[in-house]
Design a protein around this nucleic acid. Structure first.
Lengths: 112, 112
DNA sequence: GTCTTTTGGCTCATAAACGAGCCATCGGCT
DNA sequence: AGCCGATGGCTCGTTTATGAGCCAAAAGAC
């Protein structure tokens, strides 16, 4: 068998993963860390780090974010210290939103 | 046994995951999608979607990114279409960097 | 108020990621 | 040139996430 069934990911997801992996690799090289060193610091195996740098979609997101942080890669918006605050603000926002989504039986929202 | 050993993640990683989960939830509510609907569109189970929105570090990053994209969440920098181009530019940059890191046997770079 | 649907949380079987270890190759020193 | 370390890629066994299904509670519609 050529492939034992793979999960379908959108092209954008693949691109984003590939870019993130490249950023991590750049960060690692910029800090002159070997793959073994970075893997050790991140608490993962060297094999997993290679998969992360390659942009493997199956990697645990915690491991990827951890290595990204060590390499100095800004996660989504380079706002590092404001992250906690931002989380709090969004929590407030969520509190104001409906807790459950009720389907209108006529149409489906498909505006994206 | 209380806990069968858990992977240690930095606080920043936890915060980032929690925020990303919140953003996804906001996006889902904004589009009036039920958890079941979004999970189906993302090709994942409802249980996994709940873990993603909760910020579980063990989720596959591909599933998380895919969900985020559907919800309209900008991954790291809201530059959506420029993503492919950015990936290319970083690839060029990498080509100019050393392929292997050689350890200076005296000290270790620890500037972060 | 009642009813309907969404949601959170749980168990369990299965599928998949992860870690360890290995080898071949490449890259930078000397 | 040779040497030594870093890297890529692979297999295999173990650990883990994932999906399916269920239940009780919460939330919105009526």
């Amino acid at each position: 068998m050529p492939k034992p069934a793979e999960r379908p990911y959108s092209q954008y997801t693949h691109d984003a993963l590939a870019l993130l992996g490249q950023l991590i690799r750049e960060g690692r090289l910029a800090k002159s860390l070997t793959t073994t060193e970075l893997a050790t610091r991140a608490g993962i195996s060297r094999a997993l780090l290679q998969r992360i740098e390659r942009g493997d979609p199956g990697c645990a997101i915690g491991a990827v974010f951890e290595t990204a942080v060590i390499c100095g890669v800004a996660l989504f918006d380079s706002d590092e210290r404001a992250l906690a605050a931002k989380k709090a603000r969004h929590a407030e926002k969520l509190a104001l939103m409906p807790k459950a989504i009720r389907q209108s039986r006529t149409g489906v929202k498909d505006d994206f």
